[in-house]
Structures are given as structure tokens and as C-alpha cells.
Computed example of a mutant assay.
Amino acid sequence: MVLFAFVAVVGLYQAKAQVATPGVDQREGLQRERIRSGAASGELTRRETAHARRDQRSIRRTERRAKADGEVTRQERAQIQHKQNRASRQLRRNKHDAQVRPGA
């Protein structure tokens, strides 16, 4: 009986720790693809590609911190969305700035 109670508590704790953010995750995937295609086509220079990837790491880090307490508040979601918007605008500017990586 004690073992069952322990397993139930652990299961509830893990379920709470895995907060779902499907919108954020979907957008991260789309951004990753935009970066990949921009690097492959030469629309992004090496420096621009590195900067875009660094921005995505920062967004993931912010998301992890928001999920750490088991709940993503409205303010935390707004912060993540703001970072994603900024990164998206910068990525668009870099992809369309007429710089082409040599040899791409």
C-alpha cells in the first residue's frame, strides 16, 4: 500500500513538472527550419546563423525556467512570445538583407 502511494505521488509530480507549451514548441520548430533553410541557401551568413541559433537557445532556456515550477504563467508566456517575435523579426531581416554567403 505504501509503495502504491509513493508511485502515485511520484507520478503526479512528474505530470505536473511536464507543463505543455504546444504553441511555443511548434513555433520553435518552424524557426529552426527557417534557420536551416536560410543557412543552406546562403541567405544567412555564418555569423547571422550563429546569432539566430543563439537566440533560439535563449528562448529554450527561458521556456525551461518558466516550466521549472510546474506552471507557466501568463507573464512568462508573454515573455517567451516577445523573445520569439524579436528573434523572428531579426531572422527575417537577416534573410532578406541582400547578403549572400559565398560558396552556398
Score class of each variant (00 low, 15 high):
Arg61Ser: 14
Pro102Val: 08
Ala104Ile: 02
Gln99His: 03
Ala17Ser: 10
Arg46Ala: 14
Pro102Asp: 07
Glu71Asn: 08
Gly23Asp: 11
Gln79Glu: 13
Thr21Ser: 05
Ala104His: 03
Asn85Phe: 07
Ala8Pro: 04
Gln14Met: 13
Val24Glu: 01
Gln81Asn: 12
Tyr13Pro: 05
Ala20Met: 08
Lys67Leu: 11
Val7Pro: 09
Arg89His: 09
Arg34Lys: 06
Lys95Ser: 11
Glu28Gln: 06
Ser88Tyr: 01
Thr21Leu: 15
Leu30Thr: 09
Arg36Ile: 00
Ile59Asp: 06
Gly38Ser: 00
Glu43Asp: 14
Asp69Met: 07
Arg47Lys: 08
Glu71Ile: 02
Pro102Met: 04
Glu71Pro: 00
Arg61Tyr: 06
Gln79Phe: 01
Lys83His: 14
Gly103Phe: 02
Asp97Leu: 09
Arg47Tyr: 00
Ser37Pro: 04
Arg47Ile: 07
Leu30Glu: 09
Pro102Lys: 07
Arg101Pro: 04
Arg61Asn: 09
Arg61Leu: 10
Glu48Asn: 00
Arg36Gln: 07
Ser58Glu: 14
Leu44Gln: 01
Arg92Ser: 12
Ala78Met: 11
Asp55Ala: 14
Arg101Ile: 00
Ala8Leu: 14
His82Thr: 12
Glu28Ser: 04
Lys16Gly: 05
Gln18His: 02
Arg27Phe: 06
Gln81Arg: 15
Ala66Val: 11
Asn94Asp: 15
Thr62Leu: 14
Ala68Ser: 12
Lys83Glu: 14
Ile59Leu: 08
Ile59Glu: 05
Gln99Trp: 03
Lys16Ile: 02
Ser37Tyr: 01
Lys67Val: 06
Glu76Gly: 04
Arg32Gly: 05
Arg27Ser: 05
Pro22Ser: 03
Lys67Trp: 09
Arg54Ala: 15
Arg53Asn: 14
Gln84Lys: 04
Gln75Ile: 08
Glu63Arg: 11
Ala98Asp: 11
Gln56Asn: 12
Tyr13Phe: 15
Ala5Gln: 13
Ala17Asp: 07
Val24Ile: 13
Arg65Thr: 02
Gln90Asp: 12
Arg101Phe: 01
Thr62Tyr: 06
Asp55Arg: 12
Arg57Pro: 06
Ile35Lys: 00
Ser37Cys: 02
Val10Thr: 13
Glu63Thr: 15
Thr62Gly: 06
Gly29Ser: 04
